[in-house]
Amino acid sequence: MNRAETQTPPPEALTVVPLRHYGLWVGTVITLVILGLVLKALATNPAFDWPTVGKYLFHPSIMRGLGQTLLLTVTIMVLAIIIGTIVAIMRLSPSRILNAFASAYIWFFRGAPALIQLIFWFNLSLIVREFSLTLPFVGTLFTVKTNDFMTPFVAAVIALSLHEAGYMAEIVRAGINSVASGQTEAAGSLGMNHRLILRRITLPQAMRFIVPPTGNETINLLKTTSLVTIIAVNDLLYAAQSIYARTFETIPLLIVVAFWYLFVVTILSICQHYIEQYYGKSDQQQGVSMGGMLKRAFRFGRVAQPA
């Protein structure tokens, strides 16, 4: 044993000198400087015109637009989840034909750009002038002109639901595949049939893998709905455009629009967090609380890495 070791004090008496993260400090200072410059520009540049932003924030036509955007998002997402789940189940079925149909569906509706699908459905009357139901011996029961029911809103709902369902199908399929095959076997050995197994065993467990990407999809969809301005659906962006086309207060109105999108996204994120917690309740570990998350996000300096 050498001298140095014999002189070492017992471990509990040792003080820890933390490693100095100079790089982190420099980075933090640079970030703060940039943040300061941005805030100064926002506060002093007259183009932002904050009083005008305030004037239009709760303007009735903006509120109507927001309502329309939310209605579109909810309707489309609900339809997309239903259609997507059906397509996913077809995709996983042992039938070759169902499987091929589902693959083709996903390939086409997910692959073709949303904007093109939107314009296509809006112009459906160019291909199909009218729909009619004709029964043999009974005659034609009813006829509707495509233009009569294919309003901009209906076109938007159909186009974006079918498009979004392509994404949802893949999400649901991945979720179902992530459930261990032993679960299905155990259920089968208890005498549960396919449908019961899907409803009671597979889908509930798949939800933990389906909810997070579905949350992302909803947020994405909320913003994608702004495409409908192109076919004159009176959504949030369209409402703002109609106003600044008259008043030329372009930038303040875009800020109003951005504010409402961000506001709804924030609400959706919070909902997503709670839904995820609900479906993760069979996990032993406690979910991270919202307060904890905020604390972690805003802690100065080094952010603890989640394990």
Binding site: S189, M192, N193, H194
Partner: peptide, 25 residues
């Protein structure tokens, strides 16, 4: 048919190496 198969399976219990308890219950 499926219904009868399920009925008969319900009379035959099975215990697996990896337990296969329903993990969400």
């Amino acid at each position: 048919n499926n219904k009868l198969l399920c009925q008969r399976r319900a009379d035959i219990g099975m215990v697996f190496q990896s337990f296969n308890l329903f993990s969400h219950m």
